[in-house]
Design a protein around this nucleic acid. Sequence first.
DNA 1: TCCATAGCAAGAGCGGCGCTCTCTTTTGTG
DNA 2: CACAAAAGAGAGCGCCGCTCTTGCTATGGA
Lengths: 229, 229
Amino acid sequence: MSTAQGARARARTEITAAIKDEARRQLAAEGAARLSLRAVARELGMVSSALYRYFPSRDDLLTALIIDAYDSLGHAAEAAHHAVADAGPLERWTTVCEAVRGWALAHPHEYALVYGSPVPGYTAPQTTVPPAARVGLLLIGIVRDAHERGHVTAPALPPALREEAERMRADLAPDLPPEVVAALVAAWAQLYGLIGFELFGQFHRVVEDREPFFRHAAIRLAHGVGLTA
Amino acid sequence: MSTAQGARARARTEITAAIKDEARRQLAAEGAARLSLRAVARELGMVSSALYRYFPSRDDLLTALIIDAYDSLGHAAEAAHHAVADAGPLERWTTVCEAVRGWALAHPHEYALVYGSPVPGYTAPQTTVPPAARVGLLLIGIVRDAHERGHVTAPALPPALREEAERMRADLAPDLPPEVVAALVAAWAQLYGLIGFELFGQFHRVVEDREPFFRHAAIRLAHGVGLTA
DNA sequence: TCCATAGCAAGAGCGGCGCTCTCTTTTGTG
DNA sequence: CACAAAAGAGAGCGCCGCTCTTGCTATGGA
């Protein structure tokens, strides 16, 4: 696809990539709010108006970075999971959780861009959905495997939540009990709460030795979903 | 203090309050990133440079809004708790959780300002610490009461976390078992994970009937801390 | 009571931002 | 080779945060 194209097309993809790389550099260094099209253009030796040939607005550039961030995070989680693919569900679960945390600590501004407060006036386009789902799918897969092997004891589910849990099950994991799906979605959100609090400074002077704290919390999240091994 | 002052001092506090009010209006309407000193001044019929007599920078104005947001949230949580002060610990816990969620849904931009990604380059001054602690103290108090009445069964604690848990206990709640304090801090972060995911759109097309979902999750958080009634 | 002073509003201005428009140059194709 | 499409360059518009200077006025001490 990308090869065997004219020189013009090749140049276009190269310049687009260079813009994204420089933008990612500035994002990592300064954060999304300080990311400026003019600065990116300046650094690349082009004039700012020329950059609009490649990204029609700052938001479009941000969207590209968001997709890349989701993909990078998803890849990190999948790679970590792959390394322990033969282990028990509990270890695979905690490994993925720790990989997500590790990626977040290594890429704080990218994490903030993706899981922090959304930029006001900005609504993520549909394109971001598939890469955003990768970590969630990974966790679902781990629980599904465990469930097939009988290593999941479904938690309780109040009647008020039954209908919604059935709906989530149909959407996300038809082969899992609704109790487990509901607990899984909650654990998923809670995982990002733990990471966000650490990353955004809420644990400052509260939690000091954060690695074991997080590890323990991740294990308890797994227990909450029903994982027993 | 604030009365019996000269006309100049009275005017100063009044104008300061008017600036904060207008800034809060714009924050609620547009979000922190779109909050502009010039627009606030314009709306108040003054020139932008005059505003710097009251707030030396945009960050200082934001800090004032952050403190107000923490106080508003803390007040909402405390008021909700007060209304069920005679109920059992579990109901008091869930009531506070739901009050926090309700406040967040009602004031999304303020919530994002406080618990979302921090503005890059901005570090919250020490002044924000006491108002920020109000909700946490409330939750600690609920668990403390329950513990005194024997309604808390301490969760497990791995050896790797013992030392850190003891430290947190000494800092936060010397009258609670370290296992409970560690679980409480985790639950506190997880609570904000649930709220943040709902507020920032991660639950879009995933969780639809969110109130019972959140209520159930809050109850399970309480169980995780060890609350039994 | 008078007056120096401290506080304040206003205006101009600096550099930076996102974005648009126009004009010129380059380049691949019929 | 001619020509249309794509790309770069530059000027400019209206924002922004922030600073500096200039007058004015209320206030508190001599």
